[in-house]
Design a binder for these strands. Structure first.
Lengths: 182, 182
DNA sequence: GATTATATATATCATTCTGATATATATACG
DNA sequence: CGTATATATATCAGAATGATATATATAATC
């Protein structure tokens, strides 16, 4: 997805600074996508130059100014147009669509070159890690600051449910079939 | 995973050309990882310069020479060392580990900005696509050329089984819960 | 009360990687 | 006989990351 469309989409949930957009990528979106500061800040500057977002500078005594961006009508239109024209190309992506770039799967692929104890530890830690992830996805309590804007989206419940189901399947499979790796 | 380790790992399954390594990424590995020609060819050249692989040039009358690379003892050692020292960092990656970069999930996130008919078509095509993927993963018949080297790995059976289970879960979830997106 | 670590906030850039393009030939298909 | 696809390597502009720089506030630790 184009970085512009993505930033506009996140701003459609409410006005935000670049730093707060990054927080969304590190929080609720961390398992699905991410953009770096080096992408976010230039993108916001370009969007502002082209009037897709407006910017209010909140000067905070001696911290650097907090630049809060708001999506404009023109920006909403661009976002919707882009989503519509690119929708079909995203059908073949993500979870067993296009490239997943799974380092873990690659490690499994070459597991025969690792000592058995090492692979045992790795698999144990993977299981622990996935259990932890599962709890995160199932957690329904309060979230800090403006991160609840994204949590309350209907689509986010759908995605979280899907993610939980996938992790559970992965955990069950790993526990039942790990013997087959030796 | 470092591109060097990855290329060495694939060469550990047997001697191959850069083109054939690319074929592995587009075939059996396409859902887990990929490297472009722009990465593969320079990497092989560097590995050769440092004696981690050797190269035999098969001149083919008027086609460009086919450069077949073979992993050396030194290369096997580097690969194993790298795998061992990086193993723990791969535990938190892939399927709900690190970044999945799922364009499809992002599209769902912004689905409220798309017309209902469009989302309906998108979800239908996604289901068809996943069914097709599932068949691919379950297919156990013959594969062309030297691609069976990777298919016959024990770890590959494990990964394919896991992938099938995950896709099935995703399909079931989508079919049961797609109403919740409206 | 001093120090250390972490959080807020933006900006920049070298390095890395991709996706596209270039080049050249062979083969299959109708 | 032309057209599309496959084989095969190489290169490079453009994009994105990860790291680093800068500056301050706040919380935790000792």
């Amino acid at each position: 997805m184009q970085k512009e469309t993505l930033c506009l989409g996140l701003l459609s949930l409410g006005p935000r600074s670049g730093y707060e957009i990054k927080q969304m990528f590190e929080g609720p979106l961390s398992d699905f996508y991410s953009l770096s500061f080096g992408t976010i800040y230039p993108t916001l500057n370009n969007l502002q130059a082209d009037k897709y977002v407006s910017c209010k500078q909140h000067s905070q005594s001696k911290k650097p100014d907090k630049k809060v961006y708001t999506i404009t009508k023109k920006g909403m239109e661009l976002m919707k147009d882009n989503l519509l024209s690119d929708a079909s190309s995203y059908i073949r992506s993500g979870n067993f669509g296009d490239q997943i770039k799974s380092e873990f799967f690659l490690l499994l692929l070459f597991s025969k070159y690792l000592p058995k104890e090492t692979m045992n530890t790795v698999l144990n830690e993977r299981v622990l890690y996935l259990r932890q992830k599962l709890e995160q996805f199932k957690y329904d309590g309060p979230v800090p600051g403006n991160l609840d804007a994204i949590r309350n989206e209907k689509s986010v419940s759908f995605i979280r449910g899907l993610a939980s189901a996938l992790i559970e399947t992965g955990l069950n499979y790993m526990e039942k079939n790990r013997g087959k790796l030796n």
